[in-house]
Amino acid sequence: MTATPVRRDTTATGTMPPRARPGRGGIGRTHDRWWTPWLFLVPALAIVVVFILFPFANTLALSATDATLLKPGQFVGADNFVRLWHDDRFRTAMTNSLLYVVCVVPVMVAAPLVLAALANGTTRILGFLRTAYYLPVVMSSVIVGLIWTNLLDSRGLVNQVLDWLGVISEPVPFLSGRWLTLLSAMVVTIWTGLGYYMVIYLAALANIDPALYDAASVDGAGPIRQFLHVTVPGVRTTSALIGLFSSVSAFRVFGEVYILTGGTGGVGGQNITITMLIQQEGTGLQAETGYAGAISVVMFVVLGLLLAGQLWFQRRGGSR
């Protein structure tokens, strides 16, 4: 590489070696001064280092101290983690968040694919339906939570309809009781995610060779068999990816549960999730930031394990 300082990059005159292939690893110069690329990088790099990487390192450090919001705290080794192990709130939160993953992810992988297969097509009405299906995706979890608080209320629309149909004799208390509230929150999460994952599946469907459907049809396969034997294998990679993304976001759930329980996490914190626990322990005047840091580290590790586990599972399953 030549390093002759020529002139300012911004001026128009002066010739440059024409051989260079920027970004492709060829030999040649893309700029004159060594610091030019860093000028381009500074804003993004500064934000990411200061607001993501540094807090990440700091979280690790905090987790080994007894810091509170008001004092820096001292090194206490693994005390926070021992305390976590015996903390009922932590156990509840972990159970709820993991249950969320176990229940929500299979639905997120399967249902949007059915939806995508049915809504795939070029007609106007299908286009309209796809847009309508996507609507919940652009809404904030707070709005979604409020809408469903209305719907699931003991006198809300869901109970009204069930009552009108004669399915129930007295209102179902969707928003009280540990399991029913958790189930309601899961339904809300799924409601928000269906359209999102449908769009991703639609893109995958476009990559399936139409000749496969023709061949299946010649062999006498009906729509359901075509779906099972052509569509499902054809989008396998996408399904794996959606499994990955939806499990990470299910474990991180916050807004829906927060709003449905009115910000409390349910009676005695029975509906609390890991993110809610971090928020409750780490903010406010009594905040124990060191302890919240330890919960954060556990959350990070569990998410890492979830990812690793899924990748391992997919390798073994033989999908690429």
């Binding site: 990411v48 200061v50 607001f51 993501i52 990487l53 540094f54 807090p55 990440f56 700091n58 979280t59 905090l62 990470v248 991180r252 916050f254 890991i274 993110t275 971090i278 928020q279 780490g282 903010t283 905040a287 930031t289 919240a292 840091g293 954060s296 580290v297 959350m299 990070f300 998410l303």
Partner: peptide, 18 residues
Amino acid sequence: VVALLVPIESIIIAQFLL
């Protein structure tokens, strides 16, 4: 890439302190 993989919820308390 590393920054992309860090879940925001797990650093949010440290972000707040900052």
